[in-house]
Write a protein that binds this DNA or RNA. Structure first.
Length: 772
DNA sequence: CCTCTGCATGTTTAT
DNA sequence: TAAACATGCAGAGGA
């Protein structure tokens, strides 16, 4: 039976398609011609139920039959032990012991009292009277005597609360005479999924539109911003299933008016598609969603297809070739010859083309929407939210949070985009706009299909963060680590995970002063920071404690556009340089540091993985000479050094204890010949080298230390590092042999302006020698 | 050599 | 895992 449903319901009969929200195939599951009931309800008039339209009984696993059950009220009922399916009227009383449903028993079917239902219906009717909304369409199908069950959705506007749409879903189970009423006005707002997938406007289910335009009672100039109609397109023709939401037309009032012009024609939005790079490219082929093509365009049996006339919003008629390619036993529909039209509309990848149909003549119409419209609408809605314009929404806080989260994500995305693409934030925003899609699918994976839109050139690819760079962004947790040994490798173990620090840019002024630049996560302005400041994952102007005049997002940017461009250019060069370094791992740069091609970004000269701000033990070492930190300095760098130094001391003591225990054990046993000195040496060397692979804190003096008490170590660890080093005649935390071996010399940046840094990583085979 | 055309293929998404 | 879709690509044809 199901296979007939879509086609039959598509018929313009009995007013089924007169009402906008209640359209054939939406909630109705009866053929309007024959009255046959169909069990499958692909959709309810609730939005976003396509993935929850079927719901299994939590006890028996039996599938219930109405999309309405996805509403929170219904789920609640379900969880309370049972529910009447508004589709088949069967009630399910769950018996977990038998895992069998008992249709003959009525479960908790309806929570709303009859009075509540009547009241709501009355409210609905009053609303219809007040707004002129004609409910014929919603009720006409009820005239069918054969109808046993159905459900309908009613959208009510301005029912006492300004700009708030109250959406009611009424399920009628006529056979059992048990109407089920589910107020679901909170549902959309409380479901992050909804908005993340379809944008914050997605919950607007607009009632019917007599012609073009929005229903009476809907304030197009309201603080809700530009009204966008998001409606599932009609189910008709050969479409077997509902279209994917991403193709649902989001038509603005302005667009509707543009399309319809002065005519009295009714505009039926069909579908829309975000242009891919291929679509917008010169090849002139627009790939049509299969379901849309088969649903709304003329049927074609030959690959050659047929010419199709489509009128744009300016009234200009375009002739395209609508055809298909055989593809994997399927078809791929394309509209050929769209380049002139695309160019005429000045569309590019990321923009959206919309397809509508003018009724009654059935002429196909083509509209477009620049990608930025979506964002601006979103923003306007956000600002509306912030203005409290819809504060009466019951779940406004959640919704607002959601929107702000969305915006944050967007901004964050823009920041990354700006950073990665070497673009001013405005340009990045522009590009992001072109790819911004509120669909869950797209937001879920920015780097997927939209990647092709975002990263169009090699430069952008070059600017992706490398794994090493990401490592640099890992800020160490604040807790002291414990040390675990796994297969001879020692690891610092933190209770808290490391966090990603924010990326930043390091520069050196002509005066020799080092600078770090970071971008505010709120306003995207670049702020100057101390070079040794470890950026957290998120950083805003408010945290700019070093420059009171720029500790607010309102403060002007310190960089003019040209300087910003230079800064980003430096970053780009820096990336390139680092990439080239990463491709030549064995090739060390000379002691003079970076070559001519290296930008003036201050980095270590020997190891591209390190830079000022890096938290590794080497980079954390306070700079010697000029700018040396004070012994009691509590800056992040010094604290990190102290912490690691303490770890080092503890580990040294532990190792010494182990060694002593081992010797004691051997001397006790005396069972076999003692290993020769050489063997012992080899053994220790092997063991040590094994650990040294990952040990950042090897103290070369450990082997010379005969006995160190824990207390003395702790004492040493707590005293200023300089004091300790002075007492032990140390000039560096790195071993003297290491420092003098020539394989890992102390290095200065070419400019001599970066902090003294040393490698803390194994650098090839020689590394083991240094630590043994 | 360039463009067009049709198909193939890899990627992403839905089920 | 299958379907949908974006895009690559080889061959044909024309400038």
């Amino acid at each position: 039976m199901n296979e007939l449903c879509g086609a039959l319901l598509a018929a313009d009969t009995d007013g089924f398609r007169k009402g906008w929200p209640l359209r054939s195939g939406d909630c109705a599951k009866l053929c309007v011609k024959c009255g046959t009931a169909y069990e499958q309800i692909a959709f309810c008039e609730l939005f976003h139920l396509e993935d929850t339209g079927w719901r299994e009984c939590t006890s028996c696993g039996k599938r219930l039959h109405c999309g309405c059950i996805a509403s929170s009220a219904f789920i609640e009922l379900l969880e309370n032990g049972g529910v009447n399916c508004v589709s088949c009227s069967n009630s399910f009383k769950h018996d977990p012991s038998t895992s069998e449903d008992k249709p003959e028993e009525c479960g908790i079917s309806v929570e709303n009292s009859v009075e509540e239902i009547r009241s709501s219906i009355k409210m609905y009717k009053q609303s219809c009277d007040a707004t002129g909304y004609d409910d014929d369409a919603s009720t006409s199908h009820m005239k069918h005597e054969e109808i046993q069950t159905t459900s309908m959705s009613i959208s009510i506007y301005n029912t006492g609360v300004k700009d708030v749409q109250t959406e009611l879903t009424i399920g009628l189970a006529s056979s059992s005479q048990k109407p089920a009423f589910y107020p679901v006005e909170d549902r959309e707002l409380s479901k992050p999924y909804s908005s993340s997938q379809h944008g914050p406007w997605a919950h607007h289910i607009l009632p019917k539109v007599p012609k073009s335009g929005f229903p009476q009672g809907f304030d197009a100039n309201s603080s809700m911003g530009s009204p966008i109609r998001v409606a599932r397109p009609p189910v008709e023709g050969r479409v077997k299933n509902q279209l994917l939401p991403r193709y649902w037309p989001r038509i603005t009032e302005q667009e509707l008016q543009q399309i319809s012009g002065d005519s009295n024609a009714t505009i039926v939005p069909l579908f829309e598609k975000v242009l891919s790079a291929s679509d917008a490219g010169r090849i002139g082929r627009l790939v049509l969603p299969k379901a849309c093509a088969e649903a709304y365009f003329p049927p074609i049996s030959q690959p050659e297809g047929l010419p199709l006339r489509i009128q744009d919003i300016k009234g200009k008629e375009w002739l395209f070739q609508f055809r298909f390619w055989p593809n994997n036993n399927s078809r791929m529909y394309v509209l050929e010859g769209v380049t002139p039209c695309i160019q005429s509309m000045q569309l590019k990848a990321g923009d959206t083309v919309t397809f509508s149909r003018m009724e009654p003549e059935g002429k196909l119409l083509m509209g477009s929407r620049k990608a930025s419209v979506s964002t601006s609408v979103q923003d306007s809605r956000i600002s509306a939210m912030h203005n409290g314009a819809i504060e009466n929404l019951s779940n406004v806080n959640d919704y607002s949070n959601l929107l702000q989260s969305l915006k944050r994500n967007t901004d964050s995305h823009l920041n990354i985009l700006s950073r990665n693409m070497n673009l001013p934030i405005g340009d990045a925003k522009s590009r992001a706009d072109s790819s911004f899609q509120p669909d869950k699918k797209r937001s879920r994976n920015i780097g997927s299909k939209s990647k092709r839109l975002l990263m169009e050139n090699q430069d952008a690819l070059d600017l992706k963060y490398t794994w090493e760079e990401l490592q640099d962004m890992l800020n160490p947790p604040t807790m002291n680590p414990s040390t675990v040994t796994i297969e001879d490798h020692e690891f610092e173990e933190y209770e808290e995970p490391p966090v990603f620090g924010k990326g930043s840019i390091f520069t050196v002024r002509l005066s020799g002063e080092q600078e770090q630049w970071a971008q505010c996560d709120n306003c995207s302005k670049w702020r100057r920071l101390p070079v040794d400041f470890l950026l957290p994952a998120k950083w805003t102007c408010q945290e700019n404690i070093w420059d009171g005049s720029r500790s607010s997002c309102l403060a002007p940017d310190e960089l003019n556009p040209r300087e910003l461009e230079q800064l980003l250019g430096m970053m780009k060069e820096h990336h390139k340089w680092r990439n080239s370094m990463s491709h030549k791992p064995d090739q060390e740069q000379g002691p003079s540091g970076p070559n001519e091609t290296e930008p003036s970004v201050a980095t270590t000269t020997k190891h591209p993985r390190h830079r000022p701000g890096c938290s590794c033990i080497v980079c954390s070492q306070p700079p010697s000479g000029k700018g040396k930190h004070k012994p009691n300095c509590t800056c992040t760098v010094c604290m990190t050094v102290k912490r690691r130094f303490k770890t080092l001391m503890l580990r040294k003591q532990q190792r010494q204890s182990e060694r002593e225990a081992e010797i004691a054990e051997k001397s006790q046993l005396k069972l076999g010949p003692s290993p020769t000195n050489k063997e012992t040496e080899v053994k220790q060397s092997t063991s040590s080298s094994g650990k040294a692979q990952l040990d950042l804190n090897i103290d070369p003096h450990a082997s010379n230390t005969t006995h160190v008490s824990m207390m003395s170590l702790l004492k040493a660890a707590n005293q200023p590092l300089e004091t300790y080093m002075k007492q032990h005649g140390l000039t560096s935390l790195i071993s003297e042999p290491q420092a003098s071996s020539g394989s890992q010399p102390l290095l200065q940046a070419s400019s001599g302006l970066t902090p003294t840094v040393q490698e803390d990583e194994p650098q090839g085979p020689n590394h083991n020698d240094n630590s043994s």
